[in-house]
């Protein structure tokens, strides 16, 4: 695998200038997971309306370029979409969105935020309506 390809410019852009990195006060759902292999963490907070539309979503986290840039790319992709869109967005879609081909271990970095987002709709925030 070509290393230059792994860290493409647009990926580094997402890493340094991420989409919606932060917390969401109006969050109805929140979930976080850790990659036990390396300790990378991603937390996603999102606001769902009654129609199942993702009104807004934010992420926080700590980890490598791949885990954090992929989170930014995923959130940008899902912003304004519906729960159904989200459920249909497969792991392969996520790897394709990221772009460069990854070895199995690095795929785990890339899929961390995807896993969190798939679970977040099952994790309502206490007190949220």
């Amino acid at each position: 695998m070509d290393q230059e390809e792994l860290y493409q410019e647009h990926i580094l852009d997402h890493y340094e200038d991420p989409f919606h990195r932060g917390t969401l006060e109006a969050a109805t759902h929140a979930h976080q997971e850790k990659n036990p292999l390396c300790g990378d963490v991603v937390r996603i907070e999102l606001e769902l309306d009654a129609q199942g539309k993702i009104c807004d979503l934010y992420f926080t986290g700590e980890g490598c370029v791949i885990s954090q840039a992929s989170a930014s790319m995923l959130l940008e992709q899902m912003h304004g979409k519906t729960i159904d869109d989200l459920k249909q967005f497969s792991a392969d879609d996520m790897l394709q969105l990221y772009g460069p081909r990854l070895t199995p271990n690095r795929q785990k970095c890339c899929l961390l935020s995807w896993k969190v987002l798939q679970s977040v709709v099952h994790s309502p925030v206490d007190g949220a309506s």
Partner: peptide
């Protein structure tokens, strides 16, 4: 991150 070191 450490991953970047190991990868590059």
């Amino acid at each position: 991150h450490a991953h970047e070191f190991a990868q590059v």
